[in-house]
């Protein structure tokens, strides 16, 4: 070590110090640091505040609990909120089409259903949407893997891989999916859509990206004072949704298929 130091010292003495070169290097380092530093700082800040930079983990499983006793007849707050949140209210009926046919072809992510028990005559109201199965049939049948389940349990469609074959719609036991039948004009940046692809409720995945703790439908239902839809982490024993599941007698729609849905209903 000593020898090396000496050697360097001698050689600098020999050549003399190139002050200009030092200044240049110093300036370059300064400019470089000035350019990179905000990025590093920003990145660090973002990592804290914005889950978008973190991969989705299976530490959580997002889901919904729907208490049908609280779901009001004639209320469509959840449907309207979903349409607005995901830009579905921007859909326009192609000019020459009849209203009746358009009703069957437009995209619907959440719908209100009113049921009557054949034996007892009891009436039930509930919202239906993608049930975010643990073993989703739509994911099984998709030839390209466009229909997929995220680590956090959200089932959705990768719109870059979807070829529009609609096999997932054939396979879904909940009729939860829609095909985009028409040209789209105007859509939201956070929810890109495209003609010829299949889509469905994704539990407001964009809200998950920003770390928000609810979905549009649940918020709207709460705002109406009904609180029939509760969103949360099914894996967290302390979450409200887990508490509710312990308290209420809930079931899955089409339990016979054993898909372990992420959406549970009380009072059906």
């Amino acid at each position: 070590m000593k020898d090396e130091n000496r050697a360097t010292h001698e050689s600098t003495e020999h050549r003399g110090i190139d002050k200009e070169r030092r200044a240049l290097i110093g300036a370059a380092a300064g400019v470089g640091a000035a350019m990179v530093a905000p990025g590093v700082v920003l990145h660090a800040v973002q990592a804290q505040a914005d889950p978008r930079s973190e991969p989705v983990t299976s530490d959580v499983r997002w889901g919904l609990v729907i208490d049908t006793a609280k779901c009001a007849d004639g209320c469509s707050a959840c449907v309207d909120a979903c349409n607005e949140e995901n830009g579905l209210d921007l859909q326009t009926k192609p000019g020459r089409e009849s209203e009746e046919k358009w009703d069957r072809q437009k995209a619907v992510w959440i719908r209100k259903v009113k049921l009557q028990d054949n034996q007892t005559g009891r009436i039930t109201n509930l919202p239906m949407m993608c049930q975010h199965c643990e073993d989703p049939p739509c994911v099984d049948v998709c030839p390209t893997g466009a229909s997929f389940k995220r680590a956090d349990g959200i089932v959705m469609v990768d719109r870059h891989l979807c070829i529009g074959c609609r096999y997932c719609m054939m396979a879904c036991p909940y009729k939860a999916r829609s095909f985009i039948h028409e040209d789209l004009e105007g859509q939201l940046t956070s929810v890109p859509r495209g003609k010829g692809c299949v889509e469905s409720c994704n539990l407001c995945a964009h809200r998950r990206d920003y770390g928000e703790d609810s979905t549009a439908c649940a918020d709207a239902c709460a705002a109406e004072g009904h609180n029939a839809i509760v969103f949360g982490d099914l894996k967290d024993p302390n979450s409200i949704i887990s508490q509710l599941l312990k308290e209420l007698s809930t079931r899955q729609i089409r339990e016979d298929l054993e898909l372990n849905t992420g959406v549970r209903y009380a009072g059906v």
């Binding site: 390209t144 893997g145 870059h160 979807c162 070829i163």
Partner: peptide, 25 residues
């Protein structure tokens, strides 16, 4: 009849082998 026939190449390059459709290709 596909919604996105121009993406046929996707069907040729991305396979999900739990799908009978993919097997049929």
């Amino acid at each position: 009849d596909l919604g996105r026939p121009e993406r046929l190449i996707v069907a040729m390059t991305h396979y999900n082998f739990s799908s009978i459709f993919a097997w049929n290709i």
